[in-house]
Computed example of a mutant assay.
Amino acid sequence: MGEGDAGRLRTRPVTSLGALRWLPFVVLFAVAVIDLLAGPSLGFLPLLTLGPTFASVSGGVRRTAMVGAVAIVICVPLASYNGLLLKRQNTITIVTIVGVTAASMLAAHLRLKRERELANVRLVAEAAQRVLLRPVPRRAADLRVALSYTSAAAEAQIGGDLYEVVTTPHGVRLLIGDVQGKGLAAVETAAWVLGAFREAAYDEAELPDVGERLEASLARHLSGEMFVTAIVAEVHHSEISLYNCGHPAPLLISPDGRITAMEPPHEGLPLGLGALAADRPKPHRVMFENGDQILLFTDGVIEARNASGEFYPLAERAPLLMADDPQTALDSLRGDLVRHVGGPLLDDAAMLLLRRIPA
């Protein structure tokens, strides 16, 4: 995968995690200060239970127990200051702190167990993606190919973006797609699509027949309302044929910087929903000459939002792809995408750049 992105686990920002780890002690200190300032007339000691409660959110069992012990240590001198040291009210407060600490320790144990399980599932899914999504060739006939694949944030499940570029007796054929949904089910669906494409791209002479093979394969394996948006393309002498199944339209970038969205003449339904349409999509041809570039991408790119909720303006940023080396150009665009979001993406984002060069 491009830049090793697909196998990279994202973690929460260090600053945010550090703040959560210190929060229980800040709360205990704040309760102690408030109790001292309020004087013996007002009792804030029961609020010390907030310390172990917050500790269970980010810490382990031992850390939660330590925060509970600190809460009791703080409670004793404060109770003496308030004249409650040997009274029933203080005994109830200490028992409450112990009980909340025990419950928080259990909650921390269950949270850590769940996090380990989710991490293992994510590792399995990412390993499956690395096996499925083989490195694409950097050159194919008179094309130079660049790839960028950015994994989703750790808070999101692994996605189902897929791509492939193969040189066949019928010419260079390629696939880019996005499986509806996330998790291992999406990875499994992507495996069926890629397997069917790798066979059909060699066997079928016509692009619609390749699409029909993909539709038939998904019809056997998909259930419910799952679907896959995809583009199957075939490069000709000075043109490219696009078989669009409900996928975002690629961008054609001419050598002079003119950008054109290659919208299909007729909207096609995604793969897996073919039974709902009277006619299957028809391929349409677009001029693709020396110096031209075509950028294919998944919706994780154009649906990426910044802090203000604004979508990534891909068409406006496409001039970044004018660098001499296609991979360098695509890496620049990917960096701009990450800067726009201001952090990890919430959905996988795949981009495939084709640049036509003299044979």
Rank of each mutant, 00 (worst) to 15 (best):
Y243W: 14
A278Y: 14
P270A: 07
N244T: 10
L242G: 11
H247M: 13
L269F: 12
G246C: 08
G274F: 05
A278F: 14
A277S: 15
V286K: 01
I259Y: 04
R280P: 04
L276E: 09
R285L: 10
L276G: 03
T229E: 05
L276Y: 10
D279S: 12
I253L: 15
A230L: 05
N244A: 14
I231Y: 06
G274N: 09
A275M: 12
H237Y: 01
R285E: 12
P283V: 08
G268F: 06
I231R: 04
M287D: 14
T260W: 01
E263S: 11
P270F: 06
A277I: 12
H247D: 11
D279K: 10
A230P: 00
E234N: 13
G274S: 11
P265Q: 08
P270D: 06
H284V: 01
V232I: 12
G274H: 07
P281F: 07
L271Y: 02
G272E: 09
I253N: 05
A233W: 01
H236W: 03
T229D: 03
P264D: 02
L269D: 02
L273H: 08
P283D: 06
G257D: 09
I253G: 09
I231L: 10
M287L: 14
H236Q: 13
S238D: 15
E234F: 02
A278C: 11
E234V: 10
P281G: 09
G272T: 07
I231E: 05
H247I: 11
V232A: 06
P264V: 02
L242E: 08
V235E: 09
T260I: 10
S254H: 14
A249W: 08
M287Y: 10
P281E: 07
A277V: 12
Y243S: 05
E239I: 00
V286I: 11
H247G: 11
P270I: 05
T260A: 07
E267T: 11
I253F: 05
T260Q: 11
D279Y: 08
G268T: 03
A275T: 13
P248I: 02
D256M: 05
H237T: 14
H266F: 08
E263G: 00
A275D: 14
H247A: 13
A275R: 14
L271F: 03
H237V: 12
A249R: 08
D256G: 07
G274Q: 08
V232Y: 01
P283E: 12
A230E: 04
E239P: 00
V235Q: 09
S254L: 13
T229Q: 03
L271V: 05
A261Q: 08
L251D: 13
P283A: 13
V235L: 12
H247Y: 11
N244C: 14
G272N: 06
P255A: 04
R280L: 15
V235P: 09
A230G: 02
A275V: 14
G257Y: 00
V235N: 10
H237D: 15
G268E: 05
I253V: 14
P250H: 09
L271T: 04
M262H: 00
